[in-house]
Each structure stands twice: as C-alpha cells, then as structure tokens.
Simulated scan of single mutants.
Amino acid sequence: MTLVPTFSTPPGFLGLPLRQDAPGIAVAGIPLDLGTTNRAGARDGPAAIRRASRMLVDGAHPTTRVDFRSRDVADVGDFSLALGDLAGSLALVEQQAAAHGHLVALGGEHGITLPLLRALAKRVGGPLALVHFDAHLDTWPESFGQRFSHGQPFFHAIEEGLVDPRRMIQLGIRSPTDPEVMDWTLAHGVTVISAIEAHEAGPAAVAARIAEVVGPAPAYLSFDIDALDPAFAPGTGTPEAGGLASWQVQAMLRRIGGVDFRGMDVVEVAPAHDVAEITALAAATIAWEYLCRAPG
C-alpha cells in the first residue's frame, strides 16, 4: 500500500521512481505531436498520464489480484526527440525503443507506433499480431500530402511487413473514411470492428474475436484514446462521436486471455482539451490494466 497521500504520489508513472535501467518492462513517455492533423497538444500527454496514474497506486487490481509493483517495471522517463523534425524524431524513437525489451509507451501522437513496431519486429524476428483500438483506420497512404503523420502508421506497418494483417484487428472504428482506404485495409486481411458493432456484440464477444484473430503470435497493443467516446475522452486531437465507453474497454482487456503481448502504447492524449483529467485517467487506466493482466 502507498505510504503517502494520493496527491503526493511521486511523479513517475504509477509512482514508480525514474531510472534508466529496465530489465523487465520499461514505461517511456514519447512527447511527440508534430504529425497531428487537427488539434495539437499530445506532446503533453505523457506528463498528464503520469499525473493521473496516481489514482491507481493504492493496491492490487480488483479482478486479477495482480499488483503492478510485483512486475519488474520501471519508468525510464521521456525519449529524446529531434526538435521540429518529424522524420528525425521517428528515427530517434526507434533507436531508443530498440534499447528496451518490453516497452509500454505513453504518447504522444499515433505516429510513434510505427518506429515502436519497427524496433519490436526486429527484436522478435518477424511480423507481429496487432490489436488496435481507434476511431480511425490510420491506414491512409498519406494525409494532406504527408506520408508520416498520425494517420499513416499502420499503412507503413503493413507495407513494411512489421505486422501480419491477417492477425491484425482494429476496434472502435467510426470516423469518415475514404472508401479506397477501407477497401485497401480489408483486402490485406485486416479485421475491422466498428464502434457500433462492438456496442451491439458486447465486450465478451469482442474479446473472444480479438483472441481468435491474434492467435498465438507475438502481439502488440496500440490504443488511441479517441477509441473512447468524447464523453469519456474529450482531451484528444481528433474526437469522434459514438465511441466506446471506458467500462467496455476495461471489460474487453480483462477478457483477452492467452494473447502474447510484447509491448503496447496509449496515444493521442491532449490534456489542454481535457476536462477534470478524465482523458488522462482513462489512458493511465488502460496502461495499468495491461500491466496487471492475469499471469499466463
């Protein structure tokens, strides 16, 4: 149990001390938002998520009974970036991610997922399965003439062979979408579950579908906070109505059994647009759920 009042929790994620060595799971902030296409501000996401995580330090997970402090996990601080240089920053993220094994990344914009997948695919020696929560497909070949904004990470991940699209599932999709982009995504074998379909099916059925698609392959979890409805996550750059509720996401994550996750990120928290920290707390809770998954 914590020995200090909740409001005095140390500033690391879940109150963890900042340290550079992380032989187990490394938590890292990646304060990049140069590739955002609407409201900026996700560069402040890591600090906000760490601050909100103080609500989660008082004990074990209520369902799995796992205490995150029983895991070998450390907060390694924020990755270095190339100021004003998107391509240079993505290269630096990949380089720093390669220095860690199991990484939990706090974004930052969704573009950071591409270099994280590049580093992890090299580590595991092949393409990864992918569980992707989002309002948007993020498989556009370009956005507004740019090839590496936050709308392209999974287009490049598929094209570069970083993920196996037949073991890739996207959940919560509901934004306006170019039909050609949707057709390209589906033609590559990606499973897409819209927010409406997830609402209608329920968390248990969706979790079962996730496990079915991913199978036994090494997997990665990428969670864009705008997968949640703006009622639960207003503090993001591209909010879309009709999204998932916080409880639905928790229920799904708690029911995904047997998936061999090797890393994850939670991205697109823009605290300048948040209300009472609810977006940052949702993001912190998603990462906490991941760290407190039941053994095995």
Rank of each mutant, 00 (worst) to 15 (best):
L18H: 08
T238I: 09
A87N: 15
G45W: 10
P62M: 03
Q95G: 03
R43Y: 12
F223Y: 11
A74T: 14
P23L: 03
A205T: 12
L103G: 08
L14Q: 06
E268T: 01
P153W: 10
G263L: 07
E142P: 00
L221M: 13
R167A: 14
G145P: 11
P234A: 08
W247N: 05
P165Y: 15
E197T: 07
L186F: 09
T36S: 09
E94Y: 01
A74K: 01
S143R: 15
G235T: 10
P271M: 05
L162H: 02
L86M: 13
I173D: 01
A52T: 05
R43M: 03
R167L: 09
L281S: 14
P127Y: 01
A129N: 06
R69E: 03
A231G: 15
A91I: 09
E160G: 05
G242K: 15
E240K: 04
A42P: 12
F148D: 12
V181L: 04
A208N: 11
Q20A: 10
L106M: 15
V57G: 02
R65A: 14
D21L: 12
L81R: 05
A204P: 00
P23G: 07
R51W: 13
F223K: 08
G235S: 07
E197A: 15
V206E: 06
A47K: 14
A48K: 07
L117P: 12
A42H: 08
E160T: 03
D78S: 01
A272T: 13
I196W: 05
L90M: 11
R71Y: 11
P62C: 07
H61C: 09
A60V: 12
R147S: 15
D85V: 08
L18G: 06
F232I: 00
H273F: 14
S175P: 01
S246N: 09
I169H: 07
S194E: 02
T285I: 01
A283P: 07
A245P: 01
L221Q: 05
T185M: 00
E268K: 03
I25P: 00
I286C: 13
D85W: 01
G29R: 02
